[in-house]
Structure formats: structure tokens, C-alpha cells
């Protein structure tokens, strides 16, 4: 027992070193002014041009992506499980494709379409659509790209959640209690997928907040792109921002986890 504990502490210590040393180095770099310690770099962040807009843009993109990918995948996967279990391998492979296709190839394809589209569609109403999805205030095209990139993670998270419950019996039990199809899905299946939904949301959030390649190459400026942009001019502050964004992401994940850890309010008991 004692030996096992020693091992555990050893491994934990090594892992901590691996993560904490670079982090500590970043923190030191961002506060070390040569002769004194100053948090100047941190205090200037909020006032720096583009910080608020890029962070907000990244968060908006993340929320939209999570909403869209869950709206797409949850009904699809429940339907797959109930109606066509034989199609599961096919869907799994399709959903795993974004892992195999490098983002650079993906974005090359998207930008080709975006260039070709306006010319070809210039005389149709779709021209306006092509313009609208590239609105720099809220680039829908990025949401669409992120939905695709999040598919492998969301698929796996939901699949694990659905495996843990007997979807068919839950749906049928709800239906025999007078629940329509949407009600059965919302009130009997979804509450029991809470863990899986949270996992999927975590992964998607982390993906969107940290995504650089696609956003940069399509010419948009969410948070990750902004950090790289300012690093050339203000090295110390860009590191400060990275440290801060790490903390922000952590806080958000913790908040989501805390939200998920709560027992659901019991509808009848709480009202009656």
C-alpha cells in the first residue's frame, strides 16, 4: 500500500512538473520587468484594442457551435439507435473523418467554395447568403466549419452516454405514459444524457476557443487569432493573455461541471 502510494505521488509529481513548469515560466515571463515584478501586462489586457470583441466573438461562436452540433447529433444518434442500429459504423466513420482530414485541407476547400460561390451565384438570391455567412461580426461559416470539426468528439461523447442507458425502453415507457415523441425525447432521454451532453459541450467549447487555423486562413479574428496577432508587437502581453485565457477556459469548464454535478430539480416535488 505504502509503495503504491509512493508511486502515485511520483507519477502525479512528474505530471505536475510537465504541466506546471511551462505554465510557471509563462507567468514569470509575463510579470518579470527585469528588475521588478509588475502585473502591468495583465492590467493592460482589458484596454487593448480587440480583446473584448475577439473574446466575445469566440464565445458566441462556441455557443452557436454547441447548440447547432447538439441539435444535429442528439436526434440523429437517438434515431440511429432506435431505428437503424446497422448504420452505426457508417455514421461513426463519417463522424471521425474530420480527425483524418487536416484542418489546412479542410479550410482550403472552404475558401475555394467561398471564392467560387459569389461569382457563380451572383445573379441568384444565394449570393446574399454567401455574403451573410461571411459577416465578420458573426461569421456563420466558422460555426459550420466548427460543427464539422467537433463531430468526432461529440459523436464519441454521445455514444458513450447512449450506451449507458436503455434508450428504447425509456422511450417506450414514456410513450405508454402518454408522452408524444418530442416529449419522450426531451423528458425521458435527454435528462439521462446530461453527462454526455456536458462532455460534448466541454470538448466543443475547448475546440472553438483554441481554434486558430481555420479562423485565421478565412480571415476572421476570434480570440486565438487575436492572441497570435498581438504577440508580434507585444510579446509579454500575448503571454499574459494566454495565461489568462487558460484560466478563463478552466473557470468555464469548472462552472459547466458544477452545473452538471447538481441533482436535477425534481419537478413534482419542487412544485407540489
Amino acid at each position: 500500500m505504502a509503495r503504491l502510494n509512493l508511486w502515485r505521488w511520483g507519477v502525479l509529481g512528474l505530471a505536475a512538473l510537465y504541466f506546471l513548469v511551462p505554465l510557471a515560466a509563462s507567468v514569470v515571463f509575463s510579470v518579470d520587468m527585469g528588475d521588478r515584478i509588475s502585473f502591468d501586462a495583465y492590467s493592460r489586457i482589458a484596454g487593448t484594442d480587440g480583446f473584448v470583441t475577439s473574446l466575445l466573438l469566440a464565445l458566441e461562436l462556441a455557443v452557436a457551435t454547441i447548440a447547432l452540433v447538439l441539435l444535429l447529433m442528439v436526434p440523429a444518434m437517438v434515431a440511429l439507435r432506435l431505428g437503424a442500429p446497422k448504420l452505426r459504423p457508417v455514421v461513426e466513420i463519417v463522424c471521425s473523418l474530420p480527425l483524418v482530414v487536416p484542418p489546412i485541407a479542410f479550410v482550403a476547400g472552404i475558401s475555394t467554395v467561398l471564392k467560387w460561390g459569389p461569382e457563380y451565384l451572383s445573379r441568384t438570391p444565394l449570393f446574399q447568403t454567401m455574403v451573410a455567412i461571411q459577416n465578420p461580426d458573426f461569421p456563420v461559416v466558422l460555426v459550420l466549419a466548427y460543427v464539422v470539426m467537433a463531430l468526432p468528439f461529440v459523436y464519441r461523447a454521445l455514444d458513450a452516454g447512449l450506451r449507458a442507458i436503455d434508450v428504447r425502453t425509456l422511450v417506450e415507457a414514456a410513450r405508454s405514459c402518454g408522452a408524444s415523441w418530442p416529449q419522450a425525447l426531451l423528458q425521458a432521454v435527454l435528462p439521462n444524457l446530461r453527462g454526455a451532453l456536458l462532455n460534448a459541450s466541454f470538448l466543443t467549447l475547448a475546440l472553438v476557443l483554441g481554434e486558430y487555423t481555420v479562423a485565421h486562413l478565412l480571415g476572421f479574428r476570434p480570440f486565438a487569432v487575436w492572441i497570435v496577432d498581438i504577440s508580434g508587437a507585444q510579446a509579454q502581453m500575448s503571454v499574459a493573455v494566454s495565461v489568462l485565457s487558460l484560466l478563463v477556459t478552466w473557470v468555464m469548464l469548472l462552472a459547466l461541471a458544477a452545473l452538471g454535478g447538481r441533482r436535477p430539480a425534481t419537478p413534482t416535488a419542487s412544485q407540489g
Binding site: 442507458i165 413534482t268 416535488a269
Partner: peptide
């Protein structure tokens, strides 16, 4: 339903 108590 695993997320509801017996009464619910």
C-alpha cells in the same frame, strides 16, 4: 426513468 425519484 433514472433521473426521477419513485414519486416523480
Amino acid at each position: 426513468f433514472p433521473h426521477l425519484n419513485a414519486l416523480d
